[in-house]
Amino acid sequence: MSDTIVKIQVTDGTVTDFKDKNLLNAWRLSFLGAILCMAYLVFFHPDPYMRVLKFIPDGLWVTFKVTFMSITGALILGLVTGLGRISRNRFINLVASTYVEVVRGIPLLVQLFYIYYALGRFLRVPDLLSAVIAMSVCYGAYMGEVFRAGIESIDKGQTEAARSLGFNRAQTMFLVILPQAWRTILPPVGNEFIALLKDTSLVSILAVSDVLRRGREFASETFFYFETYTLIALIYLVITLLLSRVVSLMEERLSHYER
C-alpha cells in the first residue's frame, strides 16, 4: 500500500479541481457566465437567438444519445481492451495491442467517415448507430490504455493476496483489482467522457442531426452564422461543464477510503 496515488493523464482534461472552495472559481465563473450570456441573448434578442434555440432541441437530444451510448460502448470496449493488453495469452494480447495501435494512428474524423460509410455499404447499419460504433471504437482504444495503466498501478501484492486465498484470475480482477483501479482510472476516464462529448460534434459531418448540424442547417438557411454558432458554443460549454461536475462528484464519492 503505497502512499502516492498514481495519476494518469491521457488526453485534454477539463475536469476542474473542486477542492477549490472559493466562491469565485473557474468552473463557477464559466458556468454562470455561459448561462447568463445565453439568457441575455435569448430574452433581449429573441430574433434570431430564440429562433435558434427553438430549432435545435432535437439535435441536442441526438447529441446526448450519441454521447451516452458511445460512453457505454467505449467503457465496455476499453475494459475488454485493457484486460486484453495485460493478458498473458499472446494472441489476445496481440489483438488488443494491434487494435489500440491502429485506432490511435488514425484521426477520429477519418475513422468516423470510414466506419460510417463502410458500415452503411456492407452491413446496412443505421446512421446513428454507425456514429456510435465509430465513436466507441475510437474511444475504446484510448480507454483501453487508461484501464491498462489503472490496473497496472495496483500493487502486485493485491493480486497475490487474492490468489493465495483461492480466488481465480477473473475473481481477482473483478473483486479486488478493478474496484481499486477504478479510483485511479476515473479521473482520466472522466476526461475521456468530456473529450468524447465534445468530439460528438464531429458526427455532424456524417449527416447525423446533432446539435451542431441543426445549428448549421439553421445558419445555412437564414445566414445568421455568427449568432447561431455563438449559441451553439455556449450550449456545448454548459453541457461540458455540467458533465465535468458529475465526474468530480463521482471522484469524491469514490475517495471514501484512503489508501
Binding site: G120, P126, D127, S209, R213
Partner: peptide, 18 residues
C-alpha cells in the same frame, strides 16, 4: 429531411439504403 455536407455523401447513403 436529412442534410448532408456534400451531395455525394447523400447519394452514397441513398445507395446503401440509409
Amino acid at each position: 429531411a436529412k442534410s448532408y455536407d456534400e451531395i455525394g455523401l447523400a447519394m452514397e447513403d441513398l445507395f446503401s439504403g440509409r
